[in-house]
């Protein structure tokens, strides 16, 4: 359940950091931070997806 809040936090923080960096004129670092935020949230999702597929496999006796 708390993973949803973590992801929402990551999304908001990356967008805020993005705005700040854009304001200071550092567009290239801003785009890199967006990528970083995306990669972190993707890593968090991958474990959940893997757990889901494992439970489905064990449940339906693949």
């Amino acid at each position: 359940m708390e993973i949803i809040f973590k992801l929402a936090g990551i999304g908001l923080i990356t967008s805020i950091v993005n705005q700040i960096l854009k304001y200071c004129g550092k567009e290239e670092i801003a785009s890199i931070t967006t990528l970083a935020g995306l990669v972190v949230s993707l890593l968090m999702v991958i474990n959940l997806v893997q757990e889901l597929f494992d439970t489905v496999k064990t449940l339906f006796i693949f």
């Binding site: 993973i3 992801l7 999304g11 908001l12 935020g37 949230s41 959940l48 757990e51 889901l52």
Partner: peptide, 26 residues
């Protein structure tokens, strides 16, 4: 959470909806 993050970062909003559906199934 999906709506909240949608304006700022649509990709992460997409990921939040995926995680939410997985949690419900689990």
């Amino acid at each position: 959470a999906h709506m909240l993050v949608k304006q700022a970062k649509p990709e992460i909003a997409m990921i939040i909806s995926i995680v939410g559906s997985i949690l419900i199934i689990i």
